[in-house]
């Protein structure tokens, strides 16, 4: 009977405090012509899906790059699991990204010469896994995203949505502590985008991966637990 069935509590329950896994404090970044970030602070809880929204050019992607250790902020600090990382060397930050972070962009950026399974296995191989178990794990992850049938296909043989699901599997296969997703559905149609977001958030919640989700689309932001808005290099939540 309509109105009589109640959603499970987790659909509505207020946010419970989460242990902070990644934080940026008073981040400033200036590319020379205009400041991209003017003192943004953000905290990401363990397993939290945080949507970062704002107009084009507001500083969202710069924030992601600083938080992921790709860019070094001009001022401010980035801490991962309680340890300051923005002062680490480039090599150490690269190792951190390989071992603890996953990255997903608008276009999956799969390697076109490799099959879907090989693409997904790649982060495991780079971390020292042997080929055979890495390929088996990759197939398992393709199955989690409903694209196991594409395991032996090249990216050029896939639709945009299929390709992005493979890219999500690749970004999550190492079960990173944090996934950085920059407009992950912007190149997809509505239905394909929703499939990607549904599966991305489902698996991230299953594995406890925190997600920093950059998007200009409120319907994508609605997959998150919380939103911050970046405007003109400043942040409001």
């Amino acid at each position: 009977m309509p109105g009589s069935m109640t959603l499970p509590d987790h659909i509505h329950s207020p946010e419970t405090p989460r242990e902070t896994v990644l934080s940026g404090r008073a981040l400033v970044k200036d590319y020379g012509n205009a400041p991209a970030l003017r003192g943004v602070s953000v905290e990401l809880g363990r397993g939290e899906i945080l949507a970062v929204t704002g107009p084009s050019g507001s500083g969202k992607s710069t924030l992601l790059l600083c938080m992921a250790g790709v860019l070094r902020p001009d001022a401010g600090e980035v801490h991962f699991q309680g340890r300051r990382i923005d002062t680490d060397s480039e090599t150490d930050r690269s190792l951190l990204r390989r071992d603890s972070f996953g990255v997903l962009f608008q276009f999956g950026q799969l390697i076109t010469e490799m099959t879907a399974a090989e693409n997904v296995a790649l982060p495991l191989l780079l971390s020292g896994a042997r080929r055979r178990p890495a390929m088996m794990t990759a197939r398992d992850w393709l199955r989690r995203f409903g694209v196991e049938a594409l395991a032996d296909q090249l990216p050029t043989q896939m639709s945009g949505g299929q390709s992005q699901r493979v890219a999500v599997a690749r970004a999550l296969v190492t079960e990173p502590a944090v996934l950085f997703a920059d407009e992950p559905t912007a190149a997809l149609d509505t239905v394909a985008g929703e499939q990607v977001m549904t599966e991305l958030t489902r698996v991230a919640r299953e594995t406890g991966t925190a997600v920093l989700l950059i998007t200009h689309d409120a319907r994508v932001a609605a997959y998150g637990d919380r939103e911050i808005v970046v405007r003109d290099g400043l942040c409001s939540s």
Binding site: L7, T201, R202, A218, R219, A222, Y223, G224, E227
Partner: peptide, 16 residues
């Protein structure tokens, strides 16, 4: 805006 996005989250979770 917060209220609208909060409602959108509820619908998104429902449909997911």
């Amino acid at each position: 805006r917060d209220a609208h996005l909060s409602r959108m989250r509820e619908y998104t979770r429902l449909k997911s």
